[in-house]
Amino acid sequence: MLSKKNLKLLIDPINKNNPITVQVLGICSALAVTVKMKPAFVMALSVIFVVGISNFIISLLRNGIPKRIRIIVQLVVIASLVIIVDQFLKAYVFDVSKQLSVFVGLIITNCIVMGRLEAFAMANSPGKSFLDGIGNGAGYGAILIIVSFFRELFGSGTIWNYRVVPQSWYEAGYSNNGLMILPPMALIIVGIIIWVQRSKNRDLIEKN
């Protein structure tokens, strides 16, 4: 269905060109929404939606957008999409929407969205842009889910709100790691992912 080149657009951002661990974009929301897996997953889906669709729309419009006002045009598109997502979440998953609070709205300022529009959608066909957007959103989402998995498991003893650390452990003296709930630990986990990724893909290591 997909040619090799198109598949590369989709797969590359998940690993070798990951927006968080390689391009180091969108870190702030990765720290904020990864305490629990469920909000992280919803956030991932929202970002995939916004990046994919906005890439597609901007790519359609790319030849008609005057160069000098392109940022504001991009912002209008992104903002409309984010509002759609926000309203959708409020309507169907209100509790998650409350947990994500301001961070759904802040997708507008997520550097990944802007970055992909500027770097890719403004210069490529709509089909390709759409795939690139989905790929980058998925790369962002993958990191979010990995980070939130560890934070929820060690910080709350649950996965997707199901208790996995048995009560008997707590009675035996085990206790949840409070640092996992705090944002610095998300940064450290992202750092460890970067470490693991780069020791596997040596060509990602920056020369200095």
Binding site: S175, N177, G178, L179, M180, L182
Partner: peptide
């Protein structure tokens, strides 16, 4: 690490 992770102890 101990201070922030296990404040109870």
């Amino acid at each position: 690490f101990l201070f922030f992770a296990y404040p109870a102890w």
